[in-house]
């Protein structure tokens, strides 16, 4: 419910987007997912496209996104969000369609779908939340986990010779002709949140113009999986994740 009571002499400087439901979020304190949800819904609000937007969220911590996002939504099997989004978009080409995927989802089990969806240039937004870990299942190693990173399935640290290297899937995706706009953002400061918001807005604009796939990686955190406080997690993010996953546009229209 919208709170319409404004005390005399006060003005509203912060509002929850109305496209975000009132359901309390289940995310851990300090987790990036909640912020990213809010920004995405804020853009949908401001662009006035709630009735024209269909979201797809696969298995991962954000599988309950449909409890929070007040748009028509489909839950997808682990890794298959971009295939499901392809199906939706192909039969509803005039709607705005986005997928919201974790790193395990998009860059491990769903790598095939990711590459081919972008390669077809599907007119969708793929929002990729990279927290370097499998959050939902309790902190196992993800394809994006950094070298040396300790997780419940790399208890002595990720080691390249047996576990391979952290996968820069966004760099890979940027090579594909079907990708129109590829960028890497974060939400650990308000300045970065504003940049992400601009990237989402641009993506929906490009989608309307049928330009091809827009792909936004958000380098995020997982305080619980990383076994850190929210503040420690954001410091660790800046110090360790950004050097390997540098922020900025990888492919942007001139």
């Amino acid at each position: 419910m919208e709170n319409t009571f404004i005390p005399v002499g006060m003005e509203v400087v912060y509002k929850k987007p109305q496209t975000l439901t009132d359901t309390p979020m289940h995310y851990c304190p300090g987790c990036g997912h909640g912020v990213i949800h809010k920004i995405l819904m804020e853009v949908i609000d401001e662009m006035g496209i709630q009735s024209e937007t269909i979201g797809v969220a696969p298995v991962g911590c954000s599988v309950f996104a449909y409890d929070y996002m007040n748009v028509d939504m489909q839950e997808a099997a682990h890794g298959r969000a971009s295939a499901v989004a392809t199906g939706v978009k192909r039969v509803r080409p005039d709607k705005f369609v986005y997928s919201y995927q974790g790193d395990g989802d998009l860059a491990a089990i769903g790598t095939g779908e990711t590459i081919h969806t972008v390669n077809r240039g599907e007119n969708i937004l793929m929002l990729f939340v990279n927290n370097g870990i499998y959050g939902m299942t309790g902190g196992q190693m993800a394809p994006t986990s950094l070298l040396g990173m300790k997780t419940s399935t790399s208890p002595f640290g990720r080691e390249a010779s047996t576990m391979g290297y952290p996968l820069k899937i966004t760099e890979l995706v940027a090579q594909l002709p079907g990708a129109y706009y590829v960028t890497r953002q974060s939400v650990h400061t308000t300045a970065n949140v504003r940049k992400l918001k601009k990237a989402i807005e641009a993506s929906f604009r490009y989608q309307k113009e049928k330009k091809g796939t827009c792909f936004i990686e958000v380098v995020s955190n997982c305080p619980s999986g990383w076994k850190m406080t929210p503040i420690e997690a954001n410091e660790w993010l800046e110090k360790n994740m950004f050097p390997y996953y540098p922020l900025g546009d990888l492919k942007a229209p001139k």
């Binding site: 199906g87 779908e113 081919h116």
Partner: peptide
């Protein structure tokens, strides 16, 4: 009519899921 050769049967069935869910 949408006719698409998918990259695998796994992708194809999930495209069907999406398209059916969207009412087609």
């Amino acid at each position: 009519v949408v006719i698409l050769q998918a990259e695998s049967e796994v992708a194809a069935i999930n495209m069907i899921y999406g398209a059916s869910g969207a009412g087609a």
